[in-house]
Amino acid sequence: MKLSIIYLVPLLFIFAFSLSATDLDHLENRIDQMLERLNKVENSKTTPPSPPVTPIMKEELPSVDFPPLPPPITNRSSEETETSKTFNRLESRIDELLQRLELTQNTAPAYQPSPELQPEQSLEELPTVDLETDPSVYSRTYSLPEDSSPQDIKVPSLPKNRFNFYIGLSIPNDSTFSESGNHNLEFGNGFEIGIEYNRMFEDESYIGAFIEGKFFDTESLAGNTEKGDNRLVNLGFTLGQDWSFSELLALKTQASIGTSITHYEIESENYSQSDLAFHYSFLIGLEFRWNEFWQSSVYYELDGRSAADRIDYQSFHQIGIETGIGF
C-alpha cells in the first residue's frame, strides 16, 4: 500500500503546476489523513503479528503501469478542463482508499496468542528382539489381564432340575400262564402314563426317579377268548444322557430299573392275583427344546418285568410323547 502511495506522489507533482493553491492544500490535507490512518493501523495493538515475509527478489517486484500522460495542452481552457478531470479522478480514488481504511476497535480482528506448544513426551524405547536368534520368544506364554479373565464372565445358568410328564401307547407281548401246564396268554393293547424327575448336570447327563402305570386287557388263553383287567405300577430310578444337535434339537437316551407291582386277571380261571416283580426299561427319544425351561420329545421305550406268581416274564413296547419344564 505504501508502495502505491510512493508512485502516486510523482504523479501529483506532474500536475501541481496547473493546480491552484487551494486545491493543492485540499489534496495535501486528504493525503495527510490517509497517511495518519495508515499509521494508526500499523501501530494498533490489536493487530496480530504478521507472519514472516519472504524477501522478494528484485526481479520479482511487481510492475506498476502508470496511466498515460495527457496530450500536450494547446490552450488554457482545455488545460483546466483536463486537470479538473484528473484531479476529480484522483480525489475519488483517495476517498475509496480512506473508506477501505475505516477500521475501528470493534471491527479490528482481535489478536489471540497461539497456545504454547507442549514439549513432546518422551517415548520409552522398546527392546529389540531378534526372532531368529532368541529362542525364548517361542517359549513365552501370555495371559489376558485379570479384569478380562473368562472366569469373570458370568454365563446364565441352565435349569438343574426337570419335571416331565409322559403318555403313550403300550403294546404288550404274549406271555404264559401256568395252571396244570403252560398255556399261551395273549393281551390287548393298552396305554401307559407316568411322571419323572431328573437332576441335570453340566455335561447334559442326568439321574432321576419315575413312577408310571400300564393298563391293558386279557384277550385270550390257549386260543380261547378271555377277559380280564390288568395293570402294572412301575417305580424306580433313571440314568440318562442328552446329545445335543443344536440349541433346539437333542437325542435323548435313558435306562431305568425298579420294581413292578403287578395285577393280572383271568376270568375263566377265576384268577386275580397281585405280586412284585423286577422292572427294567430302555428309552430313546428325539427332544425339541422350545426354550431353556420347556422341552418336549417323542420316544420309543422297551421295558419288561420278571415273572409274577403264575404269569411268566412279559415285555412291552411303548410309543409316546413327553413334555417337561426346567427349574
Rank of each mutant, 00 (worst) to 15 (best):
S180T: 12
S180I: 08
G181D: 06
G181Y: 01
G181K: 03
N182V: 12
N182M: 12
N182W: 13
H183W: 12
H183R: 15
N184H: 13
N184E: 14
N184V: 05
N184P: 12
L185V: 14
E186Y: 06
E186T: 15
E186N: 15
F187K: 04
G188C: 06
G188T: 04
G188E: 07
N189S: 11
N189D: 14
G190T: 07
F191G: 14
F191D: 08
F191W: 09
F191I: 05
E192T: 07
E192H: 14
E192G: 03
E192Y: 12
E192C: 00
I193Q: 09
I193P: 10
I193H: 03
G194A: 03
G194I: 07
G194D: 14
I195V: 15
I195M: 09
E196R: 08
E196T: 03
E196C: 10
E196P: 00
E196G: 05
Y197V: 10
Y197D: 06
Y197T: 05
Y197W: 12
Y197F: 14
Y197M: 08
N198V: 05
N198K: 09
N198M: 08
N198T: 12
R199A: 07
R199H: 09
R199P: 03
M200I: 13
M200V: 11
M200G: 12
M200T: 12
F201I: 15
F201M: 14
F201S: 13
F201C: 09
D203P: 08
D203K: 11
E204L: 10
E204Y: 15
E204M: 10
E204V: 10
S205D: 09
S205N: 11
S205R: 13
Y206C: 02
Y206W: 05
Y206N: 10
Y206G: 03
Y206S: 05
Y206K: 05
I207A: 04
G208R: 01
G208D: 03
G208K: 02
G208T: 13
A209G: 15
A209C: 07
A209Q: 01
F210C: 03
F210L: 07
F210H: 05
F210A: 06
I211P: 11
I211W: 00
I211Y: 02
E212Y: 03
E212M: 01
E212D: 06
G213L: 04
G213R: 10
G213N: 04
G213K: 08
G213D: 04
K214L: 00
K214Q: 02
K214G: 00
K214M: 01
K214P: 00
F215L: 02
F215C: 01
